[in-house]
Design a protein around this nucleic acid. Structure first.
Lengths: 333, 333
DNA sequence: ACGCATTTTGCAACCGGTTGCAAAGATGAG
DNA sequence: CTCATCTTTGCAACCGGTTGCAAAATGCGT
């Protein structure tokens, strides 16, 4: 079916090596040979078999893109950016959906079978051990949206969730709120833990402000809504920092259904700034996570690690900022 | 780095063939040899190189998943279902993001270089010629969410958009609306054309009902909102069939911003029933597209075509149904 | 224990490329 | 024109597997 190197060689009247060399960057071929080969290749519609060449070169240009967040709208943006970014660098994403899977062993086996050059674990809910297992298996790996540690064992790219928690706290304090709360994502997620920690640390500096913490069972609309409905059974806080945007939107719907006004009765600040947050019917005040930068850096880092396998593990964090919209009252003054 | 067949063979004291056979389904190996090989493989942490074997077997178990809809929230669900469905059948999705690309040539070349076994084109906005180009290149291909034709040249799986247009029209007629309209997606998309056609055909049977048609520039929130804002400058229709859910949500936001009530002043019916449509703050009446069935059938069909390459091209359409929610007034009686 | 049918096994060639090496060819200096 | 040097080329081995074929081993009936 497919036309092979050998056929091109025969047609061009040269050796197979000559054909191979015209298609490999920086190999030694004369202009004359190259022209002959290119002509024959064009006539035959030849394009080299990337998998066959990977056998000898040891490179497939395949990157495993592993995620378990197939329900959070932000991940559509994430996949878009990752696939485009990888394509632009001549790499191919092999998508792995981890949905219920908690054990990395299967994914590792599969990705090794396909000899991926590297792996990007894109998830804020998987434990660090997950990416570490890939590294232990000898695969260059970057954990995007992972947790920052002072002694990283794998590359991590993302945001400083603790700083974000602080930032959220400051945003609420600056608006004069005296009873605030964190409505977090699943307690097991490192992103939740860190955002909570930063939030509480900052508020510890304001003993006059009452603060409480609860958790939704997932980063999802339903979970956010359910948790807020529960909260509304007792007198709620004046303003909530929600674990992420989709949780925020769930919470908002519960608040409005209860006949309360946003931001007058209850203020909400989210995190992510997904596309939907700026839809005018949502208009969510949130903390913007610079997705494009995070993803660009993740790709750069996985590429660098492929080239230098024992590169020192590195953490790259990007600053976030509050995006003012309509779910938090205006700053005084 | 990776452990090879040869090493396992040496350790187990058998030939390379024996090792290969223990790892290929239905090959002839004695229980004793198999045990020896499995032991050695386990000790060495061996797993066969799928790419190397693809060289001789001609199968990579790689499926190209090609799409250009990386901005429509429904596609997160689509990717989730496709990746899970493929994984469950032992296949691997190689994701191709077509975003701005309009020429299939690049994608074809790339997918052939990686010897994908088949291709799924998942898009309701790409022209039929796109999938046809894959077929012409000799790749088994299924166009998911594509247009139904009476003489199909490639496999198509999706819905009958004309029937959906009719269904939407009947839903509006049944509610007693006398001035209705279609707010379509991009005019170039076959899905838009067909939904419009069905809608108008059905309404042609009701000459007493006034009907109008306009188009948004994309299947997106912003486009839907902008188009509805434009429409509201003149007296609007009583009810709109919007090209899809995300367009509907954009339209809804424009309507509410204009101080009009839904469904009392203006009714909206969408199409897709994406997860967000049932969020209580959206509560969109819409036509449900059975995603899981469409995607399951697409995978079945691409697998069948891989096994029987000259299989007769087939169209599989799944019925849709109206999901009653809050953006269309109740049926009379 | 023997002969025959059936498994099981290893050899060697092959899949579609790449690459070290040495021979062949081109280039330039003298 | 010769010789030394540099470039281009083809050979052959290899990457990690699979598979047709014939030889070896096994099982079975008697």
């Amino acid at each position: 079916m497919a036309v092979t190197l050998k056929e091109v060689a025969e047609r061009a009247g040269v050796s197979r090596s000559a054909v191979s060399r015209t298609f490999t960057e920086g190999a030694s071929v004369s202009a004359r040979t190259r022209a002959k080969v290119e002509k024959a290749a064009r006539e035959l519609g030849y394009s080299p078999n990337a998998l066959a060449s990977s056998l000898t070169t040891g490179r497939t240009k395949l990157i495993g893109l592993v995620s378990n967040n197939f329900h959070n709208p932000i991940f559509l943006e994430v996949f878009d950016l990752f696939t485009r970014g990888l394509q632009d660098r001549g790499l191919r994403p092999l998508l792995v959906n981890l949905s219920d899977e908690t054990d990395p062993a299967n994914s590792i086996r599969m990705l090794r079978q396909y000899s991926v050059d590297g792996v990007i674990v894109a998830s804020s809910t998987l434990p660090p051990s997950f990416a570490e297992a890939f590294r232990d298996a000898g695969l260059p790996v970057v954990h995007s949206f992972g947790r920052y540690t002072t002694s990283p064992y794998v590359h991590v790219v993302g945001i400083d969730n603790i700083a974000c928690g602080r930032m959220a706290a400051r945003a609420l304090v600056a608006r004069g709120h005296r009873r605030v709360a964190f409505l977090g994502g699943p307690p097991g997620a490192t992103s939740t833990q860190d955002r909570e920690r930063g939030f509480l640390e900052e508020l510890a500096r304001h003993p006059e402000i009452a603060v409480s913490v609860t958790h939704a069972t997932a980063y999802s609309f339903d979970a956010g809504r359910a948790e807020m409905q529960r909260l509304l059974q007792s007198p709620p806080a004046e303003a909530y920092f929600c674990g992420d945007d989709v949780l925020s939107i769930g919470a908002l719907s519960a608040i409005r259904d209860a006949g309360l006004r946003v931001p007058e009765d209850i203020g909400i600040i989210g995190l992510n700034d997904m596309a939907m947050a700026r839809w005018q019917n949502i208009d969510l005040t949130t903390i913007r996570q610079p997705l494009a930068e995070i993803i660009g850096a993740s790709i750069d880092l996985v590429v660098a690690t492929i080239e230098t396998p024992d590169r020192y593990p590195e953490t790259r964090l990007f600053p976030c900022r509050v995006v003012e919209r309509g779910t938090l009252r205006a700053l005084p003054g």
